[in-house]
């Protein structure tokens, strides 16, 4: 039996997109290669945070993990691509692009780093919640103290939108919003609900600025030890996992907006994202070299932004 430890950072719950991916992957592996793998789960940062788990896979202390694309950028800058705000129009487009040549090019950059990228699952679009005003246009973001993911690309982008971006550690965020230390944050829909943000935040603006795509990863040390059949089994299991995970997460998120509204938040759509896109264009160019010019061109073409 091949030992396969799967790690992720969030809770081991039925509704968590990462947990769903990990469990489906285990099920599918068992389907494809019954009894071949001894699978164990490590949720809740048990073996480290996302960067640390990436290092773990490189060092061979962890076999597999579900890691947010944003964090994978810490070892391969190509992954910054999906954090370019307003790159994807909707789920369908994002899935298509990530399953195609663009996604493959990104996953391939991991192999020389000692990690095999099997595919992208889904955590959904990130939107903006705050206590100052609903955001329809970039002007509405003016001066809002907004916690963003602590990455340069987020800081730069929200600076452009006119917000006051703050790279606060996640564990401090809820209380900071509650006490008014910050005005709001950008966050996936499912996380708003799961973390009770409706209790402390007034406005949800569906900016849908970034599509969060966690990747299903396996340590190359582990993968290379497998027989050809088992390698294929792993790839097939991953493919089915991606399909099933997106379906489940999509269904879970279906009535998410409704539930958030019911929980007391004032929700608004953002009709026109062109003003945001306009403002963020220089950021695209700033990161072009880091991401890889060819990859970026292909992505822009695939998303119809050329």
């Amino acid at each position: 039996q091949e030992r396969l430890r799967i790690g992720w950072t969030s809770a081991d719950s039925d509704t968590d997109p990462y947990a769903i991916a990990a469990h489906y992957f285990a099920e599918e592996l068992e389907n494809e290669a019954p009894g071949e793998f001894d699978i164990s789960f490590f949720p809740n940062n048990e073996l480290g945070n996302e960067t640390e788990m990436l290092e773990g896979m490189q060092l061979g202390t962890l076999e597999a993990a579900v890691i947010t694309g944003t964090q994978i950028a810490s070892i391969s800058s190509a992954f910054q691509l999906i954090d370019l705000p307003f790159l994807f129009k909707d789920n369908e487009q994002a899935r298509e692009v990530l399953d195609g040549e663009v996604g493959q090019m990104m996953l391939d950059t991991l192999e020389p780093k000692g990690i095999v990228g099997l595919g992208f699952v889904e955590a959904g679009f990130r939107s903006t919640i705050n206590n100052v005003r609903p955001v329809h246009t970039p002007e509405d973001m003016e001066g809002i103290r907004l916690r963003v993911q602590p990455f340069d690309i987020y800081l730069d982008s929200f600076e452009r939108f006119g917000a006051d971006p703050i790279p606060m550690e996640w564990s401090e965020v809820f209380t900071a919003v509650q006490q008014g230390t910050i005005d709001g944050l950008e966050i996936p829909l499912s996380v708003i609900y799961a973390n009770n943000f409706p209790d402390v935040t007034q406005y949800l603006s569906l900016t849908q600025h970034v599509y969060n795509a966690p990747a299903l990863l396996v340590s190359k040390q582990t993968f290379d030890q497998l027989s050809d059949e088992l390698k294929q089994a792993v790839r097939d299991a991953a493919e089915t996992t991606v399909e099933r995970q997106r379906e489940t997460v999509g269904a879970n998120n279906q009535d998410m907006v409704g539930r958030i509204e019911e929980a007391g938040m004032e929700v608004n759509e953002v009709e026109d994202i062109s003003a945001f896109q306009e403002l963020v264009r220089p950021v695209y160019e700033d990161y072009r070299e880091d991401i890889g010019s060819e990859l970026m061109d292909k992505a822009l073409e695939a998303t119809g932004q050329n």
Binding site: E52, E55, L59, G60, T61, E169, E172
Partner: peptide, 19 residues
Amino acid sequence: DANPLILSQRLIAGTGVHS
């Protein structure tokens, strides 16, 4: 038989939490 480089990672992790 775990790669002991992880030791260094864990020590640093202890000082890597803002709170």
